[in-house]
């Protein structure tokens, strides 16, 4: 089983040292990624999902951000221990990333072809001519019509969806084993979002790479991911396969999230059951469970000690003292 793990993150803690105090953006995150799977990381603004992704390639904004603890094991190498130079060999090569905003991720003064070829030449030491052929192939792969002609186009000549396709082409240029997608479709329209996600899924199956998709959209996760990590306040609160998360959530936050979403297929107009209150400030994290102040199931223990992420049943990890009660049915999810 273990050989199947391509990436393992252990107790990652990434903090930001700001004027206002220490922001504990990621505070104890552990997960693993299997070969060929799509892992969803779900959470709201400030849950630490993006920082988790950035930490993997150590792309956290310097000098305020710092990984203060933890291991990130990729092919047996701890990425946190690598020097800048060594890490660059991994970036865009074995692990690539695509970001939310396709408008700002491309350099406006270079042609698409230029930027694509740069990434190929850096990591593969190819001749320019071969790199060009490769670039055409890549554009074709991501569904850009007339790829040869488009090589000489500038980013502003592309629509948002097309730019995101180019970003994917760049990310795939060196056959990465892991593709990290940080809200890849949030800036795009619904019909374009569907195109991009389908494309990513298709390419993943073709190349047998793994995807980490970071999103706030539970629909996207339900469709494309096989396992999900739900994050809140810089920590994972629940981690399991999608069926467990969607049909038998055991953490009050996940349950609340499921109750607050509007569903296209809802039959009767039922009132939503939102989670009251707002997420806590990551600077002044409360003692105990971060979610306790918004939780309807809070007990005394919750405010004194943080519940550890525990395996409640087979491969279903939950960080809640009352998870067992949800599982056994003695506690209702309707709250």
């Amino acid at each position: 089983m273990d050989n199947n793990k391509i990436l393992e993150v252990k107790n990652l803690r990434t903090h930001f040292y700001t004027d206002d105090g220490i922001v504990k953006a990621v505070d104890g995150v552990s997960f693993d990624l299997k070969k060929g799977e799509t892992l969803g990381i779900v959470g709201e603004t400030g849950s630490g999902k993006s920082v988790t992704a950035l930490s993997i390639l150590n792309l956290i904004p310097q000098p305020t951000g710092k990984i203060i603890e933890g291991e990130i094991l990729f092919e047996g190498v701890d990425m946190t221990k690598l020097k800048r130079r060594e890490l660059q060999k991994y970036r865009g090569n074995k692990i690539s990333m695509i970001f939310q905003d396709p408008m700002t991720s491309l350099n406006p003064v270079y042609t698409i072809g230029n930027q694509l070829m740069e990434s190929i030449v850096i990591h593969r030491r190819m001749s320019k001519k071969n790199a060009k052929e490769e670039a055409v192939k890549l554009l074709q792969l991501v569904g850009i019509p007339e790829p040869k002609k488009r090589l000489t186009s500038y980013p502003h000549e592309f629509s948002g969806g097309m730019r995101q396709r180019v970003m994917i082409a760049m990310a795939l240029a060196n056959d990465p084993s892991i593709l990290i997608a940080d809200e890849p479709t949030t800036a795009l329209d619904v019909t374009i979002q569907a195109q991009i996600l389908e494309l990513m899924d298709e390419l993943k199956n073709k190349t047998n790479s793994s995807i980490i998709i970071i999103t706030h959209d539970l629909g996207v996760v339900a469709k494309y991911a096989s396992r999900v990590m739900v994050m809140y306040g810089g920590r994972p609160v629940e981690f399991s396969n999608i069926n467990n998360i969607f049909y038998e959530p055991l953490h009050p936050y996940t349950i609340g999230l499921m109750n607050s979403i509007t569903r296209l297929d809802e039959k009767k107009k039922e009132k939503l059951k939102p989670i009251e209150g707002t997420p806590p400030s990551l600077i002044d994290l409360p003692k105990g469970c971060v979610f306790a102040s918004r939780c309807n199931y809070k007990i005394d223990k919750c405010t004194s000690k943080y519940p550890p992420l525990k395996e409640i049943k087979g491969n279903h990890y939950v960080a809640c003292y009352r998870a067992k009660e949800f599982m056994e049915g003695s506690l209702s999810r309707k709250g």
């Binding site: 707002t278 806590p280 600077i283 002044d284 409360p286 003692k287 102040s293 405010t303």
Partner: peptide, 16 residues
């Protein structure tokens, strides 16, 4: 006081 931190309601978190 640590007790004050424990009862961090959104109200309190905001007043910081």
């Amino acid at each position: 006081e640590p007790e004050a931190k424990e009862e961090a309601t959104p109200e309190l978190a905001e007043s910081k």
